[in-house]
Simulated assay, not measured.
Amino acid sequence: MNTSFVNPLPGVPDVESPFFDELFAQKEASENVLRVARQLRENGFAIIDFPDAEFDARAERIKTKFHGRFDFDHWRDELWHKNDGMRVQDAWETDEGVRSLASNPQILHLLSQLYGRRAIPFQTLNFPVGTQQPIHNDAIHFSCVPERFMCGV
């Protein structure tokens, strides 16, 4: 006789499911996964240590490589409110360092456990300064079908 729990709501991310406890018990999730899952469930975000021993060096190489693509003087003088020209979209398609961060196997495994579906990277956005935008909704730019399965890292 099979006594495993069958998720009656597969269209809801596991971290948001009313069957959260049953789903994560069945996964035999580690304490770290449970901690992150609870943070996401309660706060809408979680803080983790990125699982890459080379993260700092990799980030410095990426920052150095892209630094020349940003017009900081023009941004400081005129465009700080729009951030025009201060973003590199989808660098993961051409830059190995960005790709290694976007497709980190441990992050993808964690996200797959949290959401109950295989996680896949689909976009990167690199920028040297925060946008300082007022509250806004990016759902038109960052969404998925079914909804609620997109996670920004």
Rank of each mutant, 00 (worst) to 15 (best):
F122E: 09
Q26R: 03
S103H: 06
S143Y: 08
D21E: 14
N83H: 13
R148T: 11
I135V: 14
L9C: 04
K82Y: 10
Q113R: 05
L101W: 02
R58L: 12
M86F: 05
N137A: 10
R58I: 01
L23S: 00
D77Y: 11
F149I: 12
D71T: 02
A46Q: 01
G44S: 06
D77N: 11
L34T: 00
I140T: 14
P146C: 14
D56I: 09
A37S: 04
D56F: 03
D95V: 08
A57F: 07
Q132F: 08
G97H: 07
N7K: 02
L110P: 00
L125R: 09
Y115R: 06
C151E: 10
R61F: 04
N104S: 15
L111D: 04
E78R: 10
F55C: 13
D49M: 04
K63E: 09
G11D: 07
S143Q: 11
L111I: 07
K65W: 09
R38D: 04
D56G: 06
N32G: 12
S4M: 06
E147M: 12
R117F: 06
V153T: 15
I107V: 15
R118I: 12
P10A: 05
D14K: 06
G85K: 15
P51C: 08
A102M: 14
E16I: 00
S30Q: 02
W75D: 09
F66G: 07
A102W: 02
L125I: 14
V36K: 01
P121F: 13
A57G: 12
A57Q: 13
E31G: 12
P128D: 07
K65P: 01
P134H: 15
D77C: 10
P134A: 14
V15N: 01
Q26E: 10
M86H: 03
N83P: 02
